[in-house]
Design a protein around this nucleic acid. Sequence first.
DNA 1: GCTTGATTCAAACGAACGTTTGAATTAGCC
DNA 2: GGCTAATTCAAACGTTCGTTTGAATCAAGC
Lengths: 212, 212
Amino acid sequence: MQEDIHATKLAILKATERLVAANGFEATSLRAITAAAKVNLAAVNYHFSTKDALILAMLNRRLRPVNEARLALLDQFEEEAGENPVTVEKILEALFRPVLDVVSGRAKGGRDFLRLLALALAEPGAYLKPLVEKEFSEKTRRFHHALRRTLPGLSEVEAHWRLHFAHGVFFHAVVHSAVLECTSKGRCRITSAETVLRRIVGFCAAGLRNPA
Amino acid sequence: MQEDIHATKLAILKATERLVAANGFEATSLRAITAAAKVNLAAVNYHFSTKDALILAMLNRRLRPVNEARLALLDQFEEEAGENPVTVEKILEALFRPVLDVVSGRAKGGRDFLRLLALALAEPGAYLKPLVEKEFSEKTRRFHHALRRTLPGLSEVEAHWRLHFAHGVFFHAVVHSAVLECTSKGRCRITSAETVLRRIVGFCAAGLRNPA
DNA sequence: GCTTGATTCAAACGAACGTTTGAATTAGCC
DNA sequence: GGCTAATTCAAACGTTCGTTTGAATCAAGC
């Protein structure tokens, strides 16, 4: 369905991603986007109706494959585990590795994808809510179920809260890594996806398992 | 020094806080701010030079007392502990309770303060960096030192990382509580500052103590 | 090869923005 | 009460924005 996407549409999406990452939502004008994409100014309104819809489409283009990859990885781990529940560490890896792959991947636009998501989420008006509801519902359901199977002591609400906390660790660590680098005076920085993933998983696994 | 702040200046700051929280940075015009504050349009440029400086002043107005309260609370806990190191739970409480006080306080503008900070942090250009460096440096130093005294097994960098993770838990839980409420289908919501603080502290304490 | 629908294009629209200006007003001081 | 600096004010400046329009161009089916 995305294969036969129009070349103009794709060029606009790519340019939007790059420019918004560099300058922010409001600071990126349709004129800058269409100039970078080498398309006509009116093409945005023709293909996406409005600027807001373009932003949503841009985010969703990254978000959907990530969530699909998360589910696929969880599938794989569950299959490998056979009868046994998947370990907490594997659950966390299935949650975070696909995002790290995008963020640290070769694709230029992916690098700032998470920060843009954070920006959009923090924006008032909750205009991301329909997207969140649609794209996150199955992911939430599956990982929530997996976690409760692994840690049967967790109540339903407690599992929700702790998964939310784990997302917070990952989100904050990746999006605001510059803050850590600043406050630690350069002593802490993300060198590789693997090492930061190990740190995050270690911290979150302990928090998830906490019996209290 | 803030006592004798000019009435016009204060009115602008308050109006800015309220409007930016409701509509976002770029969507809030100086005209809307000055209209709400019942001051002249040019007063903003007169008292704050520029719109960006106004935003910074607005954030700093909340940030500074919060960080002072954090340090005061840590002082108190250290005094109560006497010779012993402060418990991990107390350290976390000193970090997060002052923020929760602002967020859940009576002051209307405080409610969205953390979200605005998240928004500003996620914005490109790192124009918050000088503010972070200035306002966070002592806080970081003191809490980092306290944590390493309590958990001597942590290396210096590891302590930095884990404190960063703990901030992520808190930040995400409070700022994006709407996402949790959405994905949990309303089963999880912040009912009181006390209960959410207990959950957060429990999760983070386990993560901080994790020996691995 | 004409028709029909989809797409691109240059141009303009109307509105809103942050900032500046220079005069008017106010407040503090001798 | 007159001098000075600080503050407020109405008005305008120049720019940029998202969107619309209507004609031009392209693609494909018959």
